[in-house]
Design a protein around this nucleic acid. Structure first.
Lengths: 194, 194
DNA sequence: GTCTATATTGTGATAGAC
DNA sequence: GTCTATCACAATATAGAC
């Protein structure tokens, strides 16, 4: 399989379109024809860049995870303390959700995990691991500085926080109204930060 | 559209099978043929009971919401205080998830909300409203008794709790391991209960 | 790289016999 | 109520010309 860093500009455009489609319709909800129409080339041309759907989406998730890691690095550079970092993390999800109530790519694919090809499922798993690992480090740091409640283990708190954010997008979509990830994240943090 | 209380035994079996398929594969991920094979009758016979997919799933969600309300009533009968009620509520989700990592029907459909027919989207919205309303009453009661943190409004806390539970199923599925709704619910509550 | 054409399979849905 | 047969269409995917 190709690595996302060595693909052509047109393949990049394909990924851009497919990413939004995954966020809106899910893996089984979008087709090569949807992508082709939005990109402005024909269906077989999409197959030229990504022979199989499984590969297209796997590369898409790889790129998504990579960009997420870059954003996490950005947060580390902008905020020194755990509480600010966790708020900035929630803002990442909010930024996705405010654009037409788009879901996190891996939130959507996580829900569909049962019917996902192996390659894709593996990349989704990796995304969540990366996020929980990073959150665990931030939470543990906050606990050492007595800025975050030490009532629960860092890893447990980290995972619960991630679940609340992912869930807020699903629930927010299911109800026409409701709060977004920023609000739910703030609520969660208000019970955990000192 | 038919009401779920006045359908034949065979239609009930169809709903049973379709419900699990929705939880595993989502609305766009299952087909009338999948249902037919598992029920043991042919595809057109499914259409006889539910002419359109939209109707089948709408009735399915109606029944799901109804059963959920019955379970909520059961919790009120078994537990008097808010903390116990909230723990029992999380156990409801855990009960679903431990069966082959099944998702909440409306967690799955909420993620797919963008590509859902109107009838179905309406029923999903109703499910979430019912749950948040009930949770809000329980949380408010707990706050009055000083058993639940009054730092946040009852409704806000209720919605965050629901999000954490729905999210725990999505994330739990996306990672091969991870905690289930019971663990995540417990973590959330440990920060909120006195 | 892109296209037309096509293979193959699957989908929701209907007609009409039993 | 269930079936066989069939429709119209959409899906992933490939062959081969340009």
């Amino acid at each position: 399989m190709k690595h996302f860093s060595e693909i052509s500009p047109m393949a990049e455009r394909v990924l851009d379109v497919a990413e939004v489609l995954v966020q809106q319709q899910g893996y089984s909800g979008f087709s090569y024809d949807d992508v082709a129409r939005q990109v402005g080339i024909k269906k077989p041309s999409i197959h030229h860049h990504f022979p199989k759907k499984e590969e297209l989406v796997a590369v898409l998730v790889q790129r998504y995870t990579h960009r997420f890691r870059a954003a996490l690095l950005g947060i580390e550079g902008q905020h020194a303390k755990a509480p600010e970092r966790l708020i900035a993390y929630a803002a990442l999800f909010e930024g996705t959700f405010v654009k037409d109530r788009r879901l996190c790519v891996c939130g959507m694919l996580g829900a569909e995990a049962d019917s996902l090809p192996g390659l894709v499922a593996g990349e989704v798993e990796r995304f969540f691991k990366v996020n929980i690992d990073w959150l665990t480090l931030v939470v543990a740091d906050g606990q050492r500085a007595a800025l975050v409640s030490a009532q629960c283990a860092a890893e447990v708190l980290a995972e619960a926080f991630l679940c609340a954010l992912e869930g807020s997008m699903v629930v927010g979509r299911g109800m026409r109204s409701s709060r977004g990830p920023a609000d739910v994240g703030k609520t969660f943090l208000s019970t955990v930060l000192s």
